[in-house]
């Protein structure tokens, strides 16, 4: 479904990705782990199409199409979704307004009918309930004054509303307490399906207890240094990233 070949990318003139290869078949969840600076977040931004990330070589194919040739909004319409590590605040724009604008923009681009107001409200209510999101939160300006947990739950809510084919979760576990981690993980697991693949980026193994991946890849110096099954994450938990170019070991 997603095929990344020999991907090289620069940020501010510095090469961060350095020949990365990765293939995720439909229905699978792959985890990306690795020390700080190994290129985990860069990979997520390159896939979502952020401006300052310059691809110098390689290719990314999504459902047979050249992903790198698309604008960020086209990628969203094509089913790519990035759950941000640090979701942005937009003052004055009610979260509900933002959700509706985004959902309708994507539906329109996909040639689907836009939601009517009652249909949209019903859908949001249902999904928000599963994520234990209070409707009051959705009336507040987008991410403004949200706690870490609220922000992450809001990301997962957006993910479920936009019905993506590729879910990229960038350190979704950071800043979450154990209860919030469970709610968010349940939300993500509910979205697992044979038509969808996921790329879960994390520093720590604990998230992978909740979202059990099919494959684990360890990133080092901008490329995949090692791949394995879920047991690889457990091994890393013990040994740390020392073997992968990081002096500080994982806590």
């Amino acid at each position: 479904m997603l095929e990344i070949k020999n991907l090289h990318a620069k940020v501010d003139g510095r090469e961060i990705l350095n020949g990365l290869d990765l293939t995720i078949p439909a229905g699978e969840v792959h985890a990306i782990m690795g020390p700080n600076g190994s290129g985990k977040s860069t990979l997520s931004y390159v896939l979502a199409g952020k401006d300052d990330y310059e691809v110098t070589d390689g290719s990314v194919t999504w459902k047979g199409e050249d992903l790198l040739a698309m604008e960020p909004d086209e990628r969203a319409a094509a089913g790519v979704f990035l759950a941000f590590q640090y979701p942005m605040e937009i003052p004055g724009v009610a979260t509900m307004t933002f959700l509706r604008s985004a959902v309708n923009a994507v539906r329109k681009a996909r040639g689907e009918e836009e939601y009517s107001t009652p249909d949209f409200l019903r859908t949001v209510k249902e999904k928000a309930k599963d994520l234990k999101i209070d409707m009051e939160m959705l009336r507040r300006p987008l991410n403004v004054g949200f706690s870490g947990g609220e922000k992450k739950r809001n990301e997962i809510l957006q993910m479920s509303l936009l019905e993506p084919g590729l879910c990229i979760l960038d350190e979704t576990d950071s800043g979450l307490d154990i209860d919030a981690l469970r709610i968010v993980s349940d939300g993500v697991n509910a979205l697992r399906s044979p038509e969808r693949c996921m790329l879960v980026i994390t520093h720590y193994q604990r998230l992978l207890n909740h979202i059990v991946p099919d494959r684990v890849h360890v990133l080092s110096k901008g490329r995949v240094a090692r791949s394995g099954g879920p047991e690889l994450a457990l091994e890393l938990e013990k040994s740390g990233y020392a073997d992968y170019g990081d002096e500080a070991t994982a806590a």
């Binding site: 199409g49 952020k50 909004d73 990035l82 937009i90 724009v93 959902v103 957006q158």
Partner: peptide, 21 residues
Amino acid sequence: FYCLSRGLSEEEAVALIVNGF
């Protein structure tokens, strides 16, 4: 970028942010 990654076009994103402002 956050707005674009949610499927809004650049014009929609600016209009949304300014209307919030």
